[in-house]
């Protein structure tokens, strides 16, 4: 079947994929072997991936919010597809953020999970975006579905901002902060105090951002192809 068309865009995506894979391998190796071992032990190395994945996921949710605004302004379905793709990728990355945080917390806080403000807001954020995927399927009419999803996608971004900044405004959180002073009750704090740690952190954040963009692009193409096939199906079946 396949008459796959090679375009400049697909060549860029292929290049981006190669870069993302290489960066991912290097970033993981840096986290495991290049960064010095913190007094917390080897588990502290999860932090580089944990923060990287959160930044990648937050970027994906930001892209979804911007795409949602653009859909409401332009009423072009490509922005609806972009928002859907970005939210799906954001859920994967922030899902890993939550899971990796729980794994770090077990030896450091002596618990997998606690209803701390930061952890709770992260869970609410994840659930809000998971609900996006379920709720948008409740609409038959594509226009209404896209309109509802766009409004929801914009409102849901407030949960990302809340999760990001809650450690700055709630002194009772035990979640440590790496950039700037930690909250007074923070437990398991550590400092990114060497150039190797800083470089590893920055490289991991960049890696997960590139990975997020690459995955969103692929998911967008899949969604577009799916809708094209659905439209074709309607044409063929209506003959």
């Amino acid at each position: 079947m396949a008459h796959r068309v090679s375009t400049p865009r697909s060549a860029i995506l292929t290049g981006l994929t190669v870069i993302a894979i290489l960066m991912f391998v290097v970033a993981t190796l840096m986290a495991l072997f290049y960064a010095p071992t913190d007094p917390q032990g080897m588990v502290q190395r999860i932090f580089y991936m944990h923060l990287g994945a959160f930044m990648g996921g937050s970027l994906a949710f930001l892209i979804a919010a911007i795409a949602s605004i653009l859909y409401l302004v332009k009423r072009n379905f490509k922005w609806d597809m972009m928002a859907l793709a970005a939210i799906e990728v954001g859920l994967v990355l922030t899902g890993f953020t939550i899971v990796s945080g729980a794994i770090w917390a077990r030896p450091i806080w002596n618990t997998w999970w606690t209803w701390d403000p930061r952890l709770t807001s992260a869970a609410v954020m994840w659930l809000a975006y998971a609900a996006y995927l379920m709720l948008r399927n409740g609409f038959e009419d594509p226009d209404r579905r896209a309109r509802f999803a766009a409004v929801y996608g914009i409102l849901a971004f407030s949960s990302v901002l809340f999760t990001t900044f809650i450690t700055r405004v709630r002194p009772d959180t035990i979640h440590p902060v790496v950039v700037g002073p930690s909250p007074q009750n923070a437990q398991g704090s550590f400092e990114v105090n060497s150039s190797a740690m800083r470089l590893t952190l920055i490289f991991n954040i960049l890696t997960y951002i590139v990975a997020a963009i690459t995955l969103i692009w692929y998911r967008y193409r899949l969604e577009r192809f799916t809708r094209q096939v659905q439209a074709l199906k309607m044409q063929v079946l209506s003959r």
């Binding site: 993981t28 495991l32 071992t37 007094p39 917390q40 032990g41 080897m42 588990v43 190395r45 999860i46 991936m49 890993f96 899971v99 990796s100 794994i103 770090w104 077990r106 030896p107």
Partner: peptide, 16 residues
Amino acid sequence: AIPDNLSYLLLGLAML
């Protein structure tokens, strides 16, 4: 002494 919690790091990588 640095605590031995390598197994949690490996669990994190497995989850990734």
